[in-house]
């Protein structure tokens, strides 16, 4: 029990130090622009189809499942607005972040973990290249920037999924559907939902990098790094979501 507590506190301490080092290295020159853009492409563009399909399905499913309840009260016209608010406020940001935790965080954990095990990070260090700046700062910043963009993209695809689901039993053209959506979704719904995705992105990048960068020796640790990155990143997304909803609730009421 004591050993468990000690290792938990040790881990927490090293995550805090790792995060502190990120801010210190991120502001120092030179900034690795080429690697940053490459990572933005790798995390953003390559996750686009996966995030888009997931968003579409969430919109479609939520519409189909909510219809019977609303139909019972004759309130089917409320369906587009209600689904869109759920999607934009909660479902899409969290689902997109969880998908990215699985894809990006584990990818970063495995990549950096294997670079550590095969001494590639050491090789960078002995060539007087700062591996933290080159590998960690760029990846965390790319994830922090790309997750919100992916979420906004997925918001639109999700609402379109809702439109398709709505048209299974009812008829509405796209402009009518979007006008019903926009009467319910305010700009204020978008702001906290998008702000929290920056934190999701930061957590995804940070945890992936931390797990990979601190991987032990041996190939087994690469698997452990990837796996624990997904678990920790997914869990932290829910914690951030919990804190964000409390804060939004406090500020808006």
């Amino acid at each position: 029990m004591l050993a468990y507590l000690r290792s938990t506190f040790n881990d927490t301490g090293s995550v805090v130090l790792f995060t502190g080092r990120f801010f210190k290295e991120a502001v120092g020159r030179p900034f690795e622009w080429n690697e940053f853009i490459k990572q933005c492409y790798a995390t953003g563009n390559k996750s686009l189809p996966l995030v888009g399909i997931t968003g579409f399905i969430m919109g479609l499913v939520l519409t189909i499942q909510s219809r019977p309840t609303l139909a019972r009260f004759g309130a089917e016209t409320m369906l587009p607005g209600m689904v869109a608010v759920s999607l934009v406020r909660e479902v899409i940001p969290v689902v997109t972040a969880l998908i990215c935790a699985g894809k990006i965080s584990s990818g970063i954990g495995a990549e950096l973990g294997s670079m550590k095990v095969t001494e590639q990070i050491d090789a960078m260090e002995v060539s007087a290249i700062n591996p933290y700046k080159y590998l960690v700062v760029t990846r965390i910043m790319a994830a922090t920037l790309m997750i919100p963009l992916l979420t906004i993209f997925s918001d639109f695809v999700g609402v379109f999924g809702g439109f398709v689901g709505f048209n299974i039993h009812s008829e509405a053209n796209l402009s009518r559907y979007f006008s019903l959506v926009l009467t319910s979704v305010d700009f204020i719904d978008m702001v906290p939902a998008t702000i929290k995705t920056f934190f999701f992105g930061f957590a995804i990048g940070l945890i992936g990098c931390y797990k990979g960068f601190t991987a032990a020796n041996g190939t087994a640790s690469v698997g452990i790094a990837a796996n624990s990155a997904v678990v920790a990143a997914s869990f932290s997304i829910f914690i951030i979501d919990l804190l964000a909803v409390q804060l939004t609730d406090f500020l808006t009421t």
Partner: peptide, 19 residues
């Protein structure tokens, strides 16, 4: 230390080429 490292080469056991 980096100034000294620039004057020293290090060949790793498994070559450590960037994959």
């Amino acid at each position: 230390l980096n100034q000294i490292r620039l004057r020293i080469g290090f060949l790793f056991q498994n070559s450590a080429l960037y994959d």
